[in-house]
Amino acid sequence: MFFVIRVRGSTGVIADIKDTLDLLNLTRISHAVLVEENPSMKGMLQKAKDYLTWGEIDAETLTEIIEKRGKLVGGDKVTEEYLKENTDFSSFEELANALINAEIKAKDINMKPVFRLHPPRKGYESIRLTYNEGGTLGYRGEEIIDLAKRMS
């Protein structure tokens, strides 16, 4: 499962790329989504690589993000009480593991698929260079965990 974060804004974006970002539910800077690791999603990420960064997320980090930033449809926070009463999960850890293993989707439990994060503490490296060149954009593998923690 990929954790995808939008890094750059919408000024001057080509229409095809803007449509791809909309399909990924990444309409604003510092929004993040969970995306399945399949060829069609990889193609979408590759198409919008100049506006996104992504990598594999672990259950511990996702648990922290759901706890701090998870919202239900309607705007309420996701709480453990809600999980116990309305889902088969009794904790954030169980929910995070199920999401990472693609057993469920966020909308199945009435949770918004987008996480609205803060800008990262100490800022981005560079929003015009790829991760391999010392910037922020593109695929970063396990290093997405560090960025996600700085943004949560």
Rank of each mutant, 00 (worst) to 15 (best):
M1C: 09
M1A: 12
M1H: 13
I5C: 00
I5A: 05
V7T: 14
V7S: 13
A15I: 09
A15T: 10
I17M: 05
I17R: 05
I17H: 11
I17V: 15
T20Y: 00
L23A: 09
L24I: 06
L24E: 05
L24S: 02
L26Q: 01
V33S: 06
V35H: 07
E36K: 14
E37V: 11
S40N: 05
S40D: 10
M41W: 05
K42M: 03
G43W: 07
Q46P: 00
Q46V: 06
D50K: 04
D50I: 01
D50G: 01
Y51Q: 12
Y51A: 02
L52P: 01
W54A: 01
G55Q: 05
D58C: 08
A59W: 07
E60V: 13
E60I: 11
L62K: 01
T63N: 01
E64R: 10
I66H: 02
K68I: 14
G70A: 01
G70R: 03
G74K: 04
G75P: 02
G75T: 03
G75C: 07
D76I: 10
T79R: 05
E80I: 07
E81I: 04
E85H: 15
E85F: 13
E85I: 14
N86T: 11
F89C: 06
S90D: 13
S91E: 13
F92M: 15
F92G: 09
E94Y: 07
E94F: 03
K105T: 12
K107P: 01
K107A: 05
D108F: 00
I109W: 04
N110K: 12
N110M: 03
F115P: 07
F115V: 08
F115H: 09
L117A: 07
P119E: 04
P120V: 02
R121W: 10
Y124A: 05
E125T: 04
S126F: 10
R128T: 15
T130Y: 15
T136M: 12
T136K: 11
G138A: 04
I145W: 06
D146Y: 07
D146S: 08
A148C: 00
A148P: 00
K149P: 01
R150L: 06
R150A: 07
S152L: 11
